[in-house]
Each structure stands twice: as C-alpha cells, then as structure tokens.
Amino acid sequence: MATADESRQTIGDRLADRREQLDLTRVGLYAALITLVGFYLSPLWAGLTTAFKTQAGFVNTTPLEPPTPEWFTIAPWADAFSVMQGGLINSITFVLPATVLSALLGSLAAYGLTKLSWRGQVGVLVLFLAGVFLPYQSVLVPLRQFWSAVDLAGWLAFAPFLANRADLIELTITHTAYGIPICTILFRSYYKAMDDDMIEAAKIDGASAFGIYKRIVFPLSLPMFAVTLIYQFTQVWNDLLFALVLVTSRSNYVVTLSLNELQGAMAQEYNLQMAGAFIAAFPTIIVYVIFGRQFAKGIAGGT
C-alpha cells in the first residue's frame, strides 16, 4: 500500500511540476510576444502621441506619454493635411490606374505563359522574374531621358487637362511597366495550380483563348486579384524614387513628395511631420488592416 501511495504522489507531483513549467514557458512566450509588439509599434506610438501635442508639448514630454489636455491639439493634422491635400489627390489619380493596369497585364501575361503551353515559356518567364529584383537606380537615367524625349505634355497639348498632368501619366505608365513582373509571377503561381482539364474542357466546349480567359480564368482568379492589387497598391503608393525623377511640376506632387517636402521645410515641427506621416500612411494602413492576409500572401508569393 505504502509504495502505491508513494508512487501516486510522485506522479501527481510530477504532473503539477510540469503544469507549472508549462505555464512558466507560456508566460515567458507571451511576455516576449508582447514586448515585441511594443518594439514594432513604438515608432508609430511615438509618432501618434507627438502628432497630438503642441510644440511645447513634445519638447517637454517624452513621446511615450500620451498628450495631456494641457498640450493637446489637432492643429498639426489640419496643417499637414492642407499641405498634403494636393499630393493625396494626385497619388489617388495615378496609383489606382497603375495598380489595376499592372495587375490586369500581369494576369494576362501569366495566362499566356501558363495555360497556353508552348516551348520557350520558361525563358520568357525568367525575364519577367528577373525584372522583379531590378534595383530601379539602374534604369533611372534612361527613364528620364526616355520621358523627356517622348514629351508627353506636347503630345497631349490638345487637352490641357491631361497635358498638365503629363507627369502623373508618365508615373502611371512607369509603375505599370515595373509592376508587371511581380504581378505576372504572382498570377503564374496561381494559374499553375489551376486545373488543366478545366481549361481543355472549355476549349472543347468551343471557347476561344480569350473566351477561356474571360469566362473561366478571370472569374476564378479574383482572389489573386485581391492579393495583387493590394500588394501593388502599397508599393506604388509608397514609392518616392520614380516620383522624384519624373515629377517636375509642383502641382503634380504625389503624396510621398509632399511629405518629403514637409519634412524638409518643417525640420523642427515634429508634431506636424508625424501627422503628415500618418496622413500619407493612412490608405496603406487601412488596406493593410482590412486585407492583411492578402498582403502577407502577396509578399510571400513575391519571392
């Protein structure tokens, strides 16, 4: 009896031990995860508190503290918004078409390179894939030469409304062109997994190559369109480099240019800078929070 009791006790003890150990590791795990949340959010938190403080407020308090009523203001947001308003509108006008165009062209290219099979596909595909990794600096000088040679504003002189926005049209075309590779790769991996029999069934049903795209492949790739559009939207919206090189007129400043200018001109007004940064980031943050899953898929598929 004694031995049995003893052994039962030990087992019980051991179980308790393990539970405690388990709990400790779990606690440690969550502590680490939450500390990391602090790390990843701290720049945003610091920015957010500062954007709601007056000048005296952010000088006299640490960015870790939220604004007290004494220092609270929303003036930086209004000021930043009025500076960046034009940039926001310009960005929306060129980012949406550039995003949709590159996704559509990428989808068409991927269809032509996947579902209609012919030799040499891989060779063409490698050219697309290599384009994903291109450092844009290596095309900047010719890009500028090209657009000054094309003189889009001159071509569009008949329509002053468009001619005045030639910079934005150039940006649209440029971003579309450089967005095609990544969009093609994203769609191709999706189309490769699509049932070949289904495409052949549609062929036998009498559908043309375009009919198959329109009625079968396109409707079935809507989830991938979501991924591609979201990824491409953040990429194009966030870009500064092409805008720096291609936008010449102030009236065509896009949001990243406005923000950069704001930062340079208001070097000591951190509250204004932070509010501006949040305004510029707002569309991408919203898209990211709503479509985080698709965004993660986009960047994971982009490798």
Partner: peptide
Amino acid sequence: AMVFQSYALY
C-alpha cells in the same frame, strides 16, 4: 464533347 476523369467542371 469530352468527359474528363476529373470531371473538370467550372
């Protein structure tokens, strides 16, 4: 008309 092993329905 063809019937596929996988049915290949849309």
